[in-house]
């Protein structure tokens, strides 16, 4: 029983959950109505629902990012690919029309398929650069981080394209069973990725490549294929997130859609317990990480903090959480537990 408790409290998910809980409790004291949920027109409204709903794009990006980081890489392009997906989908819906319409130029399923295919291919390209050409992930994905928004601007003609096509709005604004549709999309993405990684050998191979690529290769794992799949999944996630984002505002904003989201996604992943060094990954942790970021943003705004200083507060909280999870602190806790006066060594392995 004691062992079970120790196992629970030492798990990566636990510390992330605790952090989330602390921020939520903080919010409860900050504003009274925080926990209240009301039903309007058969839809649930409330700040908790809002946090959940608004964290969806980062949550989906973080899902792909988690796999990328598990291989020891990073994907800086996903924010830009999110913008690209928005731009592409709305311009496909508008076709050659110059005015805002209420219908789509091509069948809607085709719009979605093309959009997702394009971002997936962009991801595949990232994977190709990393796996086959051996380019460092940060550099390789930097290409689409900048080029992605450029392409999006070319597509939109550097304007904020809008649409009134109703089915499109369902993705980001619809309701299902009293809850916003994006929440269901996020759950579906997570479920599929979780199933693919944990119910097949894929997750094991990803972790093996992330821990020791050479040994993975000697064991017969085709690591470049694993890398290409992982970056493609990240591209696909960016596509899905982009559709939700653009549909939420019914507008494609090539410059500002998902700006800095890649950093939030990385942060969510790290907060969730996946190490930037690669190896073990925690999809559930990344989801909690995304929620932490959104809840934090919320509470900062509740303080009426200016947006500039909000970033500072955010950075501070992040530093604290990351420090708590660091090996140094873990050592320190262990040493204290072992009744030793001295602080544990810095460079253990």
């Amino acid at each position: 029983m004691n062992g079970l408790i120790r196992k629970l409290t030492s798990s990566k998910l636990f510390s992330a959950l605790m952090a989330l809980l602390v921020i939520l409790i903080f919010n409860v004291f900050l504003n009274r109505g925080f926990l209240s949920i009301t039903v309007v027109d058969g839809h649930l409204f409330g700040q908790l629902i809002d946090i959940l709903n608004r964290s969806v794009p980062v949550m989906i990006l973080a899902t792909g990012m988690t796999l990328v980081i598990a291989t020891g890489g990073t994907d800086l392009s996903c924010g830009a690919l999110l913008a690209l997906a928005g731009a592409l989908s709305i311009s496909l819906i508008r076709g050659s029309s110059t005015i805002v319409n209420e219908y789509s130029a091509i069948p809607f399923p085709l719009v979605i398929t093309i959009t997702l295919a394009v971002t997936t291919l962009c991801g595949l390209w990232n994977g190709f650069l990393v796996a086959r050409l051996g380019i460092q992930p940060i550099v390789a994905t930097l290409i689409f981080m900048t080029a992605g928004r450029g392409i999006a601007q070319l597509i939109t003609g550097a304007r904020n394209l809008t649409t009134n096509y109703a089915p499109y709005s369902v993705i980001g604004q619809g309701w299902l069973m009293m809850l916003p549709v994006p929440i269901f999309i996020a759950a579906a993405v997570l479920l599929v990725v979780w199933y693919f990684t944990r119910r097949t050998a894929f997750g094991l191979f990803v972790e093996a490549v992330g821990v020791n690529a050479s040994a993975a290769r000697y064991s017969g794992i085709n690591s470049s294929m694993i890398l290409m799949i992982v970056y493609s999944i990240s591209g696909l996630c960016a596509g899905v997130a982009g559709l939700i984002y653009a549909s939420g505002i019914m507008c494609a904003d090539a410059n500002n859609a998902g700006l800095n989201y890649e950093l939030d996604a990385i942060l969510a992943t790290v907060l969730g317990g996946t190490s930037m060094m690669g190896g073990r990954f925690y999809l559930g942790g990344s989801v909690i990480g995304a929620l932490i970021i959104m809840a934090l943003t919320k509470s900062i705004y509740a303080f009426d903090v200016a947006p500039e200083s909000a970033l500072v507060v955010k950075a501070f909280v992040v530093v604290v959480v990351v420090l708590i999870q660091s090996p140094f602190f873990k050592n320190w806790r262990d040493t204290v537990k072992n009744r030793r006066a001295a602080v544990g060594g810095g460079e253990v392995r």
Binding site: L204, E207, A215, I221
Partner: peptide, 21 residues
């Protein structure tokens, strides 16, 4: 360098090549 995958468990290390096959 080429054998042990340190972070993974004994079980995962043992089944790895078999699973890769």
């Amino acid at each position: 360098r080429d054998g042990v995958i340190g972070e993974l468990s004994v079980r995962e290390n043992i089944i790895l090549a078999f699973q890769a096959r």
